[in-house]
């Protein structure tokens, strides 16, 4: 089992609902966030294009944050979900330095926090909060090893990319373009 996400940049409207939903679901302190939305505008009026991307921890298969963690607080859970065990974290910041996506932040309580793929919901058979709230339904979450899953299906049928593949982290979030 290998959890992943596919996000359709053609449908995302950049509304940031995924960000508020994550914040209320996971009690992310205001001023911090586990996910965020990027807008890239290219071209010259009126030949302009926009890419909108909802970003979060890529749950990298080759994750430098897990590798550099001196205590093992950052670790893999079932399905390749990268988690931080708060009670093991010393707040050294190494994993924050190690993440090419700036996906982690230092929680005001001292430990490092980041997207959990809403593992508490996923274990109950629900979608992550951001996925289930998205008004454009542009996010697909599921098991990349399951050939029948919706996510594998969209990845088969659409062109996609991942972010900074040259960083060698093997991201598990894919952007449909």
């Amino acid at each position: 089992m290998r959890y992943g996400m596919a996000i359709d940049t053609r449908k995302c409207v950049g509304c940031s609902d995924c960000v508020v939903a994550c914040q209320t679901e996971n009690n992310v302190p205001l001023g911090f966030c586990r996910d965020w939305v990027v807008e890239v505008v290219d071209g010259t009026y009126p030949n302009v294009s926009i890419e909108l991307r909802s970003e979060r921890c890529n749950h990298c298969a080759n994750s430098p944050c897990v590798r550099c963690c001196p205590t093992g607080a950052s670790h893999f859970e079932d399905g390749g979900i990268v988690l931080v065990e708060h009670s093991k974290c010393i707040g050294c910041g190494a994993c924050i330095e190690a993440c090419p996506y700036d996906a982690r932040y230092s929680h005001p309580d001292g430990y490092v926090d980041k997207c959990t793929f809403c593992i508490h919901r996923v274990r109950e058979g629900n979608n992550p909060a951001c996925v289930s709230v998205c008004p454009t339904s542009c996010m697909y979450f599921g098991d990349l090893d399951d050939q029948n899953s919706k996510i594998v299906n969209v990845l088969k049928n659409r062109k996609f990319k991942s972010l900074a593949p040259e960083a060698g982290t093997k991201p598990q979030i894919f952007y449909l373009v």
């Binding site: 940031s16 609902d17 508020v20 939903a21 209320t24 289930s132 709230v133 998205c134 008004p135 339904s137």
Partner: peptide, 9 residues
């Protein structure tokens, strides 16, 4: 089942 960001917030 999906509120918009304002409804969620």
């Amino acid at each position: 089942g999906r509120l918009c960001p304002r409804g969620t917030g």
